[in-house]
Amino acid sequence: MTDFILRRLFQGFLVVFGVTTVVFVITRLAGDPVSLMLPLSASDEQRAAFAAQIGLDQPIWVQFLRFAGDVALLDFGDSLWQRRPAMEVVFERLPNTALLIAAGLGTAVVLSIPLGAIAALRPGGLADRLTTSISLLGLAMPQFWLGLMAIMIFSVTLKWLPTSGIGTPAHLVLPALTLAMTPLARFTMMVRAAMIDEMNTQYVKTARAKGLGLGRILRVHTLRNIMVPFLSISGWELITTLSGYTVVVETVFGWPGLGLTAVQAIQRGDLFLVQAIVFSIALMIVCIGILMDVLSKMIDPRIELN
């Protein structure tokens, strides 16, 4: 197990190194960082001074080594927009995103398991058809639209909840629910399908022949057995959420997390901050991947780690 974790960490390191390289190549070679970051009115002297300050006058391989060294120390330079280290901004905003994702995906996980299981108990029954239709509806609605609708109904018309911002639990409700919708629908459909398969397996027949009640069969046998596929799909969902859904939802609700900050940094041409955010998200995705592998291994003894 330790062996496996070490190996996965090494693989993860390679991925992170790859991401670092890609970020470097894109920002240095695919455009001029100086004209991107300085205002149009900047003089040639100012431009040259800035280029020297960030090391652009050095040969490209020196630039890369420096960049890689800085990345290793989590030093991405100062955010031009915020006038402080970019990583500081990331660490300040990250908890907001984490809170939003925990609330949103947590809701999706907690609701999807019973919903999917109930639907699976009688495939084609009323509960099943209802859950399936609502899930398909949930999958069909884009999040920005869902978010705007939620604001119009619950904030503007009913005045139950704030439209945007952060601070109180009430501020969290709409963004978290909006974020939860798509994963909830996907999880529910997945749990349903996996449970139907699982309930038809021979080992469930054995469990029934042993005289175990439905409750015990669900709790001890089938629900646990669908955790392996469930874990891998929720890992994917977490990654998608982190790298996409949060950008939309945070923007719609003005939620000051990493996603919204990324959008603002791009708008302001704050290259260093963008780099810091992209790198942090890549790092988190790699960690999530490793965590999912380890957890699956802990649940399913048959998974070979080599």
Partner: peptide, 18 residues
């Protein structure tokens, strides 16, 4: 399960793998 028990044809799939 208590007074009447049953075993099945395919022992490879009759036990819970996890």
């Amino acid at each position: 399960g208590r007074e009447i028990t049953m075993i099945f044809q395919n022992p490879m799939t009759s036990l819970n793998p996890l």
